[in-house]
């Protein structure tokens, strides 16, 4: 059995390494009975098309932000919500398809409404804010144009930070930052480095406002078409890779801070006076106002050990 596995990650990103290594691990774990043909870098289409492709079955597997599944189950975006995880390990525990009550409830809806299910996850690092000036508190961002991923959740979050959410496509982001169309953006350090945003941005505020966890999803018909022991082997392989992705991300974050500092970026942290608490308060208040339906899931997520 060969499954087509698509994702949008570029060469050098943690998610690209994850997909390549997961394909090897799954082939080994199933004695070659199941193999993945990985299509990175949007080869089989952009995010929306990839999700629709998995739903339809033209692609069997893929991974992306949980929020990309919100087009089928709107509450899935809750796993991308800012300031709900204590750290990376908590984020992985709270998105474990085997044990997370919130994910299990929403996964059932995903199977029901979209014919697809989440079977694994990837930890891709914490998201931080980069900008053309120093940021210590939300007031520093007040009324300034910041790039928002064009999804409701991000727009709400950027608003909660006090800035003006401005939609910019990821391919236009470096140019938009260079010309000043937007003065800042937020992403994991791995993305800031891979896309050379240090050429157009001077500061990074280490807010860690979001833990970037990506969902690994599969077409449910294709999934049910596998043998029980094959499914177990795949789940176990993905779980092991998820734990490894956390190690990769944590190891690389320290290196990336050094690398980006060398490239000329200035980091602000809680130690240098970054007011994390006012970010947390502002953002959570805005999210609560805009997404009251997330409440019960956020409680469940926060309760996970």
């Amino acid at each position: 059995e060969t499954l087509r596995y698509a994702h949008v990650g570029a060469e050098g990103d943690i998610q690209t390494r994850f997909a390549a290594e997961a394909a090897e691990a799954i082939e080994a774990a199933t004695d070659g009975e199941v193999s993945l043909q990985v299509f990175p870098a949007s080869q089989l289409g952009n995010v929306a098309e990839m999700v629709d492709g998995v739903r339809m079955g033209s692609i069997q597997m893929g991974h992306h932000d949980f929020a990309s599944l919100a087009r089928i189950v709107p509450e899935m975006a809750v796993f991308n919500a800012p300031f709900i995880y204590r750290d990376g390990a908590h984020a992985l525990a709270a998105t474990d398809p085997e044990t997370s009550p919130a994910l299990q409830a929403l996964n059932a809806e995903l199977v029901e409404n979209g014919g697809m299910r989440v079977i694994g996850r990837i930890y891709r690092g914490a998201r931080h804010i980069s900008s053309n000036f120093e940021i210590d508190e939300p007031a520093d961002m007040e009324g300034k144009p910041f790039r928002a991923v064009p999804l409701d959740l991000w727009i709400s979050m950027i608003k909660g930070m006090g800035a003006t959410p401005t939609p910019v496509e990821v391919s236009e982001l470096p140019t938009a930052l260079m010309t000043g169309l937007v003065v800042g953006q937020e992403n994991p350090l791995t993305m800031i480095s891979a896309n050379k945003l240090y050429e157009v941005q001077s500061h990074v505020a280490m807010t860690g406002h979001m833990q970037s966890v990506l969902a690994v999803f599969v077409n449910d018909d294709a999934w049910q078409g596998l043998e029980e022991d094959q499914r177990e082997a795949i789940t176990a392989a993905l779980d092991e890779k998820a734990a490894q992705s956390l190690e990769w991300a944590q190891a690389s974050e320290a290196d990336l801070v050094d690398e980006l500092t060398e490239a000329g970026m200035t980091f602000t942290t809680a130690e240098t006076g970054l007011d994390l608490e006012s970010f947390r308060t502002g953002v959570l208040a805005q999210i609560e106002a805009d997404f009251p339906e997330y409440g019960e899931y956020i409680e469940q997520i926060m309760a996970v050990e």
């Binding site: 009324g143 144009p145 064009p150 727009i155 003006t164 959410p165 401005t166 939609p167 496509e169």
Partner: peptide
């Protein structure tokens, strides 16, 4: 966006 500082969400 440029004159009123209020970009339209979803224009693209």
């Amino acid at each position: 966006r440029d004159l009123f500082g209020a970009p339209l969400i979803g224009a693209e």
